[in-house]
């Protein structure tokens, strides 16, 4: 069908625009087509396949990344908008250990099944815990409502985020 899909991949390199940005702490320079989406940029240009296409409409959160530290929907952003930006993905945040407690809690609670939503879910959970270290179950549910999970019943995810909050509080000096 195609018309519903956001423009993807490189096209007409004569129109290409040079961008410089930081991705997971590394400096990246690329020539990109104006229509190249951030998710395709990450996946196809940089091989960072942990960020997923799913609804392509900004609804489901499977493409969640951090742009300059803030949660963002990768599917709603073009690569050329990110000149000078700092982008972090599940791969970088895993390597840096930034998500370690949340990932451990998701694992322990079986808050992951197929895993397709997990990157976005983890980033959203971590963002919640950074702004609200002691969220209630209702606050967790509200904060994760931009991230669809089709496999779990969300219950285990809420449990996991609550566990991660407790673990972070315990580790705090």
């Amino acid at each position: 069908m195609g018309r519903g899909r956001l423009p993807r991949a490189t096209f007409g390199m004569s129109d290409a625009v040079a961008i410089r940005l930081t991705v997971n702490g590394a400096r990246v320079e690329r020539l990109v087509a104006p229509r190249l989406n951030l998710v395709d940029f990450l996946r196809d240009e940089l091989g960072l396949t942990g960020t997923h296409w799913s609804c392509e409409h900004g609804a489901c959160g499977a493409c969640t990344v951090l742009i300059d530290g803030a949660l963002a929907r990768g599917c709603l952003v073009f690569a050329i908008q990110l000149d000078g930006a700092n982008v972090e993905t599940i791969e970088g945040l895993t390597e840096s250990g930034a998500l370690a407690e949340v990932q451990a809690a998701f694992h322990a609670r079986n808050a992951v099944q197929c895993g397709f939503c997990s990157a976005g879910m983890l980033l959203a959970a971590d963002a919640l815990l950074r702004r609200n270290p002691e969220p209630s179950r209702e606050q967790i549910r509200a904060a994760l409502s931009g991230n669809y999970c089709r496999c779990t019943g969300y219950h285990a995810i809420v449990d996991a985020v609550a566990d991660a909050a407790r673990e972070r509080a315990r580790r705090k000096p």
Partner: peptide
């Protein structure tokens, strides 16, 4: 817990 879920949680 599922051993193979760690990979999924790491974006791998």
């Amino acid at each position: 817990p599922r051993p193979n879920a760690k990979r999924l949680l790491a974006g791998r």
